[in-house]
């Protein structure tokens, strides 16, 4: 049965399992160390203060805070964004700053509704929560963009948070918010949009920093531990590349693949290319060779010609 894995590659499965173990181990470690004084450390991301600063300004001006969790479906990225928004809402609720949370996915809208109302409840400010402040606009990308920019214009938001999966609409939001003078904090896991956020927003969480931000703000041991686990994975990958490069370099430089003796003269054969090296092969399962495919009986009721349908 083992040879079946030939198609998927043992190494890749082992690596993913190892990486998962890193994450789980560190989450355990973080939970265990919580409150013991020797908590798991994560460094502060430069400029995270921008979030507090933005809410502060909105409060001063008495204008709403806008939050957009991207247009992605319900997945971990939107969840992470909503976690951060929960944090933002907490502060906003205390100062009675109005909030607007615009969603493009109904499932995300459901979760947002729940998280935000829970935040108000926990702060004991349920009466300040307006269900309509969490809105579903449209699931169509640019209808959503139009709706959000309309909201920005008409409500003259003072602070805008764009965190999550953003695509082309990112710049529409950023420039519109800029034109009404809102302070903006943005972060997208879509790297294609980050340069536009860099160009147009006041503060940008680049790539991974987005994950780190929610861990840092919430200080949940699960998030902190997972972040450390991610670091371990990264370091392993870095090690793999370094080791792999050195090993392959050694293999390519040190020897020729074949050396044939032709009469009395030593003739150089083919030099190994990088794809012939041992390390490279570890991560590259080959497609099955024809002779490895076992012979099987035809299934019931299936003729050679007509097929199954």
């Amino acid at each position: 049965m083992g040879e079946q894995y030939y198609d998927t590659g043992w190494i890749s499965i082992l690596l993913v399992l190892l990486f998962s173990a890193f994450v789980l181990f560190n989450i355990r470690r973080a939970i265990a160390s919580k409150g013991s004084g020797k908590e798991v450390y994560i460094r502060r991301i430069a400029g995270l203060n921008a979030i507090e600063e933005a809410i502060g300004r909105a409060t001063e001006m008495g204008r709403p805070v806008l939050m957009v969790p991207g247009i992605g479906g319900l997945n971990a990225i939107s969840m992470q964004a909503l976690n951060i928004f929960g944090h933002v809402t907490k502060t906003a609720a205390r100062f009675a700053t109005p909030i607007r949370l615009c969603c493009a996915d109904a499932a995300v809208y459901t979760v947002a509704q729940e998280i935000i109302s829970e935040t108000y409840q926990r702060e004991g400010l349920s009466e300040r929560f307006d269900q309509d402040s969490v809105r579903f606009i449209s699931d169509r990308q640019f209808a959503f963009a139009t709706g959000v920019s309309g909201t920005i214009h008409r409500e003259k938001v003072a602070a805008a948070f764009f965190l999550g999966e953003f695509f082309a609409e990112s710049l529409i939001f950023a420039e519109t918010a800029n034109s009404v003078g809102a302070i903006q904090v943005a972060g997208s896991t879509q790297n294609t949009q980050t340069p536009f956020f860099i160009a147009a927003c006041d503060y940008v969480l680049i790539s991974d920093e987005f994950y780190a931000a929610s861990a840092y703000l919430s200080r949940q041991p699960v998030l902190v531990g997972s972040l450390v686990g991610q670091d371990w994975i990264k370091m392993t990958v870095m090690g793999m590349i370094l080791f792999g490069s050195l090993a392959s370099t050694f293999e390519v430089v040190s020897g020729l693949k074949t050396q044939e003796r032709d009469g009395t003269q030593l003739v150089d054969g083919e030099r190994k290319s990088i794809s012939d090296t041992w390390f490279y092969h570890q991560l590259k399962p080959d497609a099955p060779k024809p002779e490895e495919i076992p012979q099987r009986e035809p299934a019931d009721g299936v003729t050679e010609e007509g097929g199954g349908a």
């Binding site: 990958v237 793999m240 590349i241 792999g244 490069s245 050195l246 392959s248 370099t249 390519v252 430089v253 990088i274 090296t277 390390f279 490279y280 991560l283 590259k284």
Partner: peptide, 8 residues
């Protein structure tokens, strides 16, 4: 990752 292995 495999593709990022280079001869140095």
């Amino acid at each position: 990752v495999r593709d990022s292995v280079r001869v140095l």
